[in-house]
Design a protein around this nucleic acid. Sequence first.
DNA 1: AATTGTGAATTGATTCACAGCT
DNA 2: AGCTGTGAATCAATTCACAATT
Lengths: 207, 207
Amino acid sequence: MSKAEIPRKSIYRLSIYQRCLHKLLENEVETVSSEALASAAGVKSTQLRKDLTYFGQFGTRGLGYNVKALSNVLNEVLGTTAYQPVILVGVGNLGAALLRYSGFNKEGFEISAAFDANPVRDRRLNGLKTPVYPVDRMCEFIRSKHVRMAILAVPGNAAQPVVNDMVESGVQAILNFSPTVLQVPEEVTVNSVDLALELENLSYFVR
Amino acid sequence: MSKAEIPRKSIYRLSIYQRCLHKLLENEVETVSSEALASAAGVKSTQLRKDLTYFGQFGTRGLGYNVKALSNVLNEVLGTTAYQPVILVGVGNLGAALLRYSGFNKEGFEISAAFDANPVRDRRLNGLKTPVYPVDRMCEFIRSKHVRMAILAVPGNAAQPVVNDMVESGVQAILNFSPTVLQVPEEVTVNSVDLALELENLSYFVR
DNA sequence: AATTGTGAATTGATTCACAGCT
DNA sequence: AGCTGTGAATCAATTCACAATT
């Protein structure tokens, strides 16, 4: 089955399963049923099984899944085995927090460099090991380090030009925190997280 | 049509349309076609029109939509007309950044209080007007101020107990940044934003 | 002439039901 | 006996196609 036919939501859930498997690994659980894993991930067991079949057969009927083995498979599928350098562009409030945010490291990512229009804007960043460069050095960096993934946290009106440069230089996937709809060629993947929108959206459900 | 039958994705898109309308308002555009508005929002025009029909008829055939009027309708539908106090729980790196993040204010939200297990952990917050209280005062605050919305940014293992307290005290909607699947009663709405997951997920698309 | 509003058709995702292994 | 894997059935969302309206 080709990559294009696999629902993006399934891919997303794989990451959730992966996280649950990590917890099981820590607790030295060896085997897990689709029922148990699915319930930890907050989905139905049939959905978990269907998601996995896009990539092959990994369970043992009557028994369940080997936690270690399945986790390895998911690493392989998700591409988290290969080291991926990631850059961050826009070191404002949010960008700086993302630099400090330990969650990325925990999941095996390290931001290899950050870029900002005004690179010394936040002196507190001196405590961090990630260098902050002026944004006009971004393209050169992307090319020389073969960067394929970027986190974008610039103000809305600055986003599209930066994205154009990124894509031009070889970035293939963007995690976008800027409150804008980005235009990218179809081979580039964008994941947008719009914090204000998420909150605004919630107010609909409060009555 | 009852609220339950309206797809959540449609509700989400309403917020996107709303943001595009704001831009048009700033530029003093009076009328917009579904085609133009949809393209600004990054969706098909039929989808925009279908989304709107869940709530009524707001356009004029042959002409389009009045920007001001439609924006008012969306404010009404999304519940952004009514003031909603929001609290934030967990003032670590991410929580502190969210407190400073101007995006929420821009969309008409103000975080009325923050709570943390260790409320003086970050002295830099002194510059902000939002008070940071010890978390054991959360329930009392929720009740006395009739808080219905909360932003959760505590570590994964601390999340569920905090959520239980929130829900018990009357919170109806939670924007969750903790990397955990939350258990809540069905009348409570949770929007989860898992930053590490979003990044991990992207690596699948990089080859 | 232009553009909305909407049933019908289509496409996509989820769940069911059960055959197939261990 | 227990649990996976999967085609078929169902459910949900999107898009089409065009009648209705200004």
